[in-house]
């Protein structure tokens, strides 16, 4: 067994909290540059230019890109030949979140109980998804999720007879309902198939994909291309103030499903599609 120290996990998670909230990944930066060139609405352009300035200020002055530094979502890919020593994995990740949000001057946005709503004051707990895979590595991906866009996400339990046209209509309706609330230009993550919870998780994972990459399934790639065009024809535009760039990308992940079902989940992310990864 390969041993990984819990303290190294804490450190990695802490660093990722700060990195992801201040710096976009290269693919996202490129997508934002492209959006500026493509947008033809004057107000839309004005919004995108402010967002470019914002990214620059965030990086130079270490001010979070967005004040909603999110609820920390962590994807863990644990090699089955790894053993964690000096603490347990879950505690280490939660501690990394606490330290990252405190030391990084990030906003504490988590309440302990959905009804009582008392702030936990350290942004813990995060939401952690585990996968156990062959191998000796531990890969951690941290994706802080803001709730302006999270609140506009939807799940549709479609019928098999609804087919691909039904899925298109559902996805487009979610994007239109989101409109200006979700801080467009958005990145749209879609999960199709599996069960109720599996397709929701796929839609979140879809947001982690590099924005210049398509699905490697031909019919899904075609669907992504068609839907991105349809979304950008809605006219919602940057900030929802009208324009031709409503989404930077749409990523669709699929999974086998039941003979009776066609679940479709749409997880919407704003232009601050944040994530950071580390392999330990």
């Amino acid at each position: 067994m390969r041993q990984i120290e819990a303290k190294d996990i804490i450190q990695a998670v802490k660093e990722m909290c700060i990195e992801a909230t201040h710096f976009l990944t290269k693919d996202m930066v490129c997508a934002m540059n492209d959006a500026c060139e493509k947008e033809c609405s004057p107000v839309g352009k004005q919004v995108l230019e402010q967002l470019q300035d914002n990214l620059k200020i965030a990086a130079e002055e270490m001010i979070p890109i967005c004040q909603d530094t999110g609820m920390a979502v962590v994807f863990v890919e644990l090699g089955q030949e790894v053993s964690i020593v000096g603490g347990n994995l879950e505690d280490a990740i939660q501690e990394g979140i606490r330290q990252g949000y405190q030391e990084g001057y990030l906003r504490m946005s988590v309440v302990k109980d959905p009804f009582i709503r008392e702030n936990t004051k350290d942004n813990s707990p995060g939401v952690i998804h585990y996968e156990v895979l062959p191998g000796k590595d531990l890969k951690l991906t941290l994706a802080p999720k803001g709730f302006g866009s999270e609140n506009m996400s939807k799940i549709f339990m479609l019928k098999p007879s609804d087919g691909i046209e039904g899925a298109k209509a559902a996805i487009l309706s979610a994007v239109k309902d989101a409109g200006p609330n979700a801080c467009p230009p958005m990145v749209v993550g879609v999960g199709i198939g599996g069960t109720f919870e599996k397709c929701a998780l796929l839609s979140k994972k879809a947001l982690l994909r590099s924005v210049n990459e398509h699905s490697n399934l031909k019919h899904i790639e075609e669907l992504e291309v068609e839907l991105l065009d349809a979304i950008n024809r809605t006219g919602i535009g940057p900030g929802g103030l009208g324009g031709v760039v409503t989404a930077l990308a749409i990523h669709i992940e699929t999974y086998p499903t039941h003979i009776a079902g066609l679940p479709v989940a749409v997880n919407i992310c704003c232009h601050v599609n944040r994530h950071a990864s580390r392999i330990l």
């Binding site: 919004v47 402010q50 967002l51 300035d53 914002n54 990214l55 200020i57 965030a58 002055e61 001010i63 979070p64 890109i65 967005c66 004040q67 909603d68 302006g148 200006p180 801080c183 900030g239 929802g240 103030l241 704003c270 232009h271 601050v272």
Partner: peptide, 13 residues
Amino acid sequence: MAAVGGAGALLSK
């Protein structure tokens, strides 16, 4: 009025 969502660093100035 709308301020630009996700421009928190810029608006802080």
